Computed example of a mutant assay.
Amino acid sequence: MEHNHDNIKLTSAEVSYLWNTYLGDSLSICVFKYFLEHVEDKEIKTITTHALDLSQQHIETIQSIFLNEGIQIPQGFTEQDVNLKSKRLFTDVFYLKYIKNMTKGGLATYGRLLQNIYRHDIRSFFSKCLTSTIELDTEVVRLLLEKGIAACPPTIPYPQKIEFVHKQSFFLEGLGRRDALTGAEVANLHSNIETNQLGTSLAIAFSQVAQSNKVRKFILRGNDIASKHIKVFSSYLEMNSLPVPMSFDQEVTESTESPFSDKLMLFHFGLMIYAGIGNYGVAISESRKSDLVVDYTRLTAEILKLSEDFANIIVANEWLEQPPLSANRKDLTKG
C-alpha cells in the first residue's frame, strides 16, 4: 500500500526524534572514524566499520527527510570536531566495549520512541534503526563471548516451586531487611555499574586531552560521581556474593593528544548523563527493595545537578544548537 506524505506534517515527536538522532549519529561518525584509524584486530575493525556505516546511513536518511520537509538540517558534529591523526587514546578492547554500550542505548531509545511515531516513513526508518542495532548488538555480543571479555549479568538460582510473598518486609526493609535481590534488581545493578564504568573510562581519557580547564574539571567531577555510584551499586551485589563487572579503565592509553574537540567530548558526556537518568528511572520502577530505591533516587539527584552544570557550560560556550520548539504564542501576540 502506497503512503503519500505530501500533506502529513511531522509531529513534534517525529521532528525531535529525528533531530536528536542526527546529532547523536554525527557524533558517532567522528568517534568511529577515529577508532578505525588505530584498530588492529580484524574482527573489531569489521564491527566498527559496520557501526560507522549505520550512523552514516541514518544521517543521509534524516538529511533527505529534512530537505523534503523544509526543515533546517542541524550542524551536529563535523570533521572539525575530530583529529584523525592524533595518537591512539583507547585500546581495541575499549572499542568493542564502547560499541556494546552504544548498542544498549540504541535499543532502549529506538524501542521507546517508536511508541510515539505515526507517519509511515518515519516509523519505517526507526524500525530499521532498531533492527540494524539488534543485528550489530548480536555481532558485538558474539565477539565479546569469543574473546572471553563479555561481562554477563550474574546467575541466580532457578525457582524450583511456586511461592508467594507472605510478609510486607519483602518491600519494607524497616520491618525486617530483605537481603536477597530479585533477578531484575541484579540485572539493573549490573547494567548501571557497566554504564558508569564506561563513564569513568571516557572521563579518564577526556580529562587527559581536554583543552579547556572548565571542561576538564567538569569531566573529572563526573568521574568522581560515576566512581561513587559504582561503589554503591557494587556493594549490593557483594552483599549477595554476586560478581561485580570488571572495570576497563586500563583500556585508556597515556596519550595527551586530543582526537576530539572539547565540544564533542562535553556533549558526549552530557548524553551519558541523560542516559543515566533514564536508566536509574527504569531501575527504580523495577526495584522492590526500598533501600535500593532510596539509593537510586538519591544518586539520580546527583546526576541531575551534574546535568545542570553541563547545560551551563555548553550554553556559555555557545555549543548547544537550539532543538525544535513549539510556537511561542505570547511572542506572536505582541504588538
Rank of each mutant, 00 (worst) to 15 (best):
H38D: 05
S55H: 14
Y34E: 08
V39F: 03
E60H: 05
D41Q: 04
E60K: 04
H50N: 14
K42E: 12
F32V: 07
A51I: 09
V39Y: 01
K45M: 09
S28W: 08
E40A: 07
A51V: 07
H38M: 05
L52G: 08
H58E: 06
I44H: 00
I62G: 03
Q63T: 12
V31K: 04
S55V: 12
F35M: 00
H38L: 06
K42N: 05
I47F: 02
C30L: 13
L52W: 04
D25Y: 13
L36A: 09
K33M: 10
C30V: 11
L36T: 09
C30P: 07
K45W: 02
T49R: 10
I29H: 13
L54T: 11
T49P: 01
K45I: 03
T49M: 06
L36W: 09
T48C: 11
E40F: 03
T61Y: 12
K42A: 08
D41T: 05
E43T: 10
D41S: 08
A51R: 02
D53P: 00
I29D: 14
S64A: 12
H38Q: 07
D25Q: 14
A51G: 02
L52C: 10
L27S: 14
D53I: 06
E37S: 11
E37C: 06
C30F: 13
D25K: 15
V39C: 09
H58I: 10
H50G: 01
I44F: 08
E43I: 03
D41P: 00
S26N: 13
K33T: 08
S28C: 11
E37W: 02
H58P: 04
S28P: 05
F35P: 00
F32P: 03
D41Y: 01
I62A: 02
T61L: 08
L54N: 12
F35G: 00
Y34N: 01
